[in-house]
Nucleic acid binder design. Structure first.
Length: 423
RNA sequence: GGAAGGUUGGGUGAGUGGCUGAAACCAACAGUUUGCUAAACUGUCGAACGGGUAACUGUUCCGGGGGUUCGAAUCCCCCACCUUCCGCCA
């Protein structure tokens, strides 16, 4: 959520930048500012009334104490009038605040200056690529066929136990999964991230904190009996660690990494995009989260991108980095880089990480602030990214590294898997 | 799941109707003292939204919501959460 004060002070910029998202924000911005003016006005009136009533209450107290009950009772009558007025104003004030919130919830984050204009992922700007697209041998298989051939992942068994999108990993497949998780965690810890094991379920307040609620509750699994949601990503519990917190400047940046399974309902997904490991209801992901001083957050974003590049380099997967265009940019993000690996048998690029700077958009809802150099409290910048999401990495690894003799395990993973070939 | 007790500022914790935005202590910060560190002493020390060039100042907030009252941290109702004991249990 944007801050009203920010919109007020940067009106033209906000409208201009939101055009990158193909949004004409003129109307809503003006509505917000008008409501905000109204809010201030009512508050002033209300404050004045309450101040008066506070004062009278004090007088009445004094009068009673000095035994002047008659005068006190006279004053009492005066307050009923004030009370009526202030109640009306309070209602008005509540209504205004609600309306204002409704409007603010609708406004997405202001894209960074360097976000390219565009409508869809086709307009994303590829800013970096590494590695060559492999040529596969005759008779190469898709990862779901490979998974079956080597008995690594059993999709049907998952259907039996739970349903579609909940695969069962077996044998070397399970081991590979665990190896990747540990490798990713180790790499993050080496880069200075603190490892976190958060709860896998969250309450409503946390859902609001990172913006899954109120709009996107349909994407999360919900446990009605206990009013809890399964996390769609570790970002939610880890970022919410800092909800309602005021940090000190020297505590920044905060760098956390967490591995968790992620649960997503993915309602409405269908077709070949969901085949195999491409889209799941439960999957494993290692997430990096940083909380940073506003002056440094873009440097941090670059650092995070570099970190993920490093992971992909070490795994030897061909990948590319793209800067999301305005039309493809997530609601809460100011700037996002997507990392995609090439999946050789499917012959397509798969998104394995999305690294974003939310600036103060999340922090505003989270109420995560810090005391700056001048002792002033201001909102932090929050950032996060996958480092990395497992299924598509596995898909790409299996497909790209297949040989007639078996599937080669990248060298960096061998210490973790204990084998260098899936046979 | 049953029972009891709790929820106050960064922490401990006082506060049962007006003098309490909140004692005291601890922590933190600034300063004095000190050869350095420590100790001691002095001061500062919650947040949000407003008004004012500023000094300063108004309102709101004592788990959340509602109520009683001229006036509520304090009384009443509902809800959430926590702790302890019992039951169950990796």
């Amino acid at each position: 959520m944007l801050q009203t004060a920010y919109i007020r002070e940067n009106k033209e910029l906000v409208i201009e930048r939101l055009k990158k998202r193909n949004i004409d924000a003129n109307q809503i911005v003006n509505d917000i500012l008008a409501l905000d003016e109204k809010r201030k006005k009512t508050q002033q009136d209300l404050d004045a009334l309450l101040a008066e009533s506070n004062q009278i209450a004090k007088q009445i107290g004094d009068l009673f104490k000095s035994g002047k009950a008659a005068e006190a009772n006279e004053l009492k009558e005066k307050t009923t009038q004030i009370k009526e007025q202030s109640n009306t104003l309070k209602e008005e004030q509540n209504q205004i605040n609600n309306d204002l919130m409704q409007l603010l919830y609708q406004v997405p984050n202001v894209p960074n200056e360097i976000v390219p204009a565009g409508k869809s992922d086709a307009d994303n700007e590829i800013v970096f690529s590494e590695g060559n697209v492999p040529t596969l041998h005759e008779g190469a298989l898709s990862h779901w066929d490979l998974a079956k051939k080597y008995d690594l992942i059993d999709f049907e068994l998952g259907v039996k136990i739970t349903g579609a999108g909940f695969p069962v990993y077996k044998g070397q497949g399970a081991r590979l999964q665990r190896a990747l998780i540990t490798f990713f965690l180790d790499e993050a810890v080496k880069s200075g991230y603190q490892e976190i094991i958060p709860p896998l379920m969250i309450n409503e307040a946390s859902g609001y904190g990172t913006g899954q609620l109120p709009d996107k509750e349909g994407q999360m699994y919900y446990m009605q009996a206990d009013d809890l949601y399964m996390i769609p990503t570790a970002e939610v519990p880890i970022t919410n660690l800092y909800r309602d917190v005021i940090l000190k400047t020297d505590e920044l940046p905060i760098k956390n990494v967490g591995y968790t399974p992620c649960f997503r309902r993915e309602a409405g997904s269908y077709g070949k995009d969901v085949r195999g490991l491409n889209r799941l209801h439960q999957f494993d992901k290692v997430e990096i989260v940083q909380i940073q001083h506003p002056d440094q957050s873009y440097q941090t974003l670059d650092d995070m991108v570099s970190h993920v590049k490093g992971l992909l380099n070490k795994l030897g997967l061909p990948y590319r980095v793209s800067k999301l265009c305005g039309g493809d940019l997530g609601f809460t993000s100011a700037l996002t880089y997507d990392m995609e690996v090439y999946s050789a048998a499917q012959e397509k690029w798969l998104e394995v990480s999305s690294i974003s700077n939310f600036e103060t958009f999340q922090a505003n809802r989270l109420k995560c602030r810090f005391k700056d150099e001048n002792g002033k409290t201001q909102l932090v910048h929050t950032l996060n990214g996958s480092a990395l999401a497992l299924p598509r990495i596995v898909a790409s690894l299996l497909e790209n590294n297949q040989t007639p003799e078996g599937i080669k395990i990248p060298e960096v993973l061998v210490p973790y898997t204990g084998f260098d070939m899936i046979k």
